[in-house]
């Protein structure tokens, strides 16, 4: 670690910091645009309609969120945006969902049960069309760039179900400890 690595580490510290800031600056345009659009969707009642539509499913996943809470609308739009591979639309919606969940949160510094469930589903990222991967496969002249779409969907559904089960397991373990 000491021989020669130190120089690389020094470099890594500052490129890491720079990457992070560049990433955040890049996020501004996306966040401003989608949160602007979502405000319109919220005020016109579109988000409420969406959450009413999928309420039976989401209610089971997030038992601690009240039925008519706006958090559900944001959670759903985040999941839908992820499904269509719209990563840049998904992030602002996910952040709004987190803000709404934070309002319901009792201990403001600590992640609530609903937040952990939401992030578990998010990191499993259900994808209908993995656009980036298809693009890479096309670049390298795949005979069938899209043949991985269905396997990806199945794998992602399995990992989402896994995420929900693991999340439940940890929740029950926490609540038994008190």
């Amino acid at each position: 670690m000491i021989n020669g690595k130190m120089e690389e580490i020094n470099k890594a510290i500052f490129t890491g910091a720079q990457d992070a800031v560049t990433l955040c600056i890049g996020l501004i345009s996306i966040l401003v645009f989608w949160l602007g659009m979502m405000r319109i969707a919220q005020e016109s009642g579109l988000l409420d309609m969406l959450s009413r539509l999928f309420r039976p499913v989401v209610k089971r996943l997030f038992p601690e969120v009240p039925q008519n809470h706006p958090a559900l609308g944001y959670i759903l739009s985040n999941i839908i945006a992820n499904m269509f591979g719209l990563g840049n639309a998904a992030t602002p919606l996910g952040i709004k969902a987190m803000e709404q969940l934070q309002e319901l949160n009792q201990e403001k510094k600590k992640a609530s049960r609903s937040m952990i469930t939401f992030l578990a589903i998010n990191t499993a990222s259900i994808t209908l069309i993995p656009t980036t991967v298809i693009a890479i496969r096309m670049t390298y002249h795949s005979a069938s760039p899209t043949e991985i779409v269905v396997p990806t969907l199945i794998a992602t559904i399995i990992s989402a179900i896994g995420a929900i089960i693991i999340d439940r397991y940890f929740y029950y373990r926490r609540s038994r400890k008190g």
């Binding site: 996910g94 987190m98 934070q102 403001k108 937040m115 995420a163 999340d167 929740y171």
Partner: peptide, 19 residues
């Protein structure tokens, strides 16, 4: 990092393990 950071949560609980 992004989601917890945006609402200022420092204790992630089981989120990392679950993820």
């Amino acid at each position: 990092t992004v989601y917890f950071g945006a609402v200022g949560i420092k204790k992630m609980g089981d989120a990392l393990k679950v993820g």
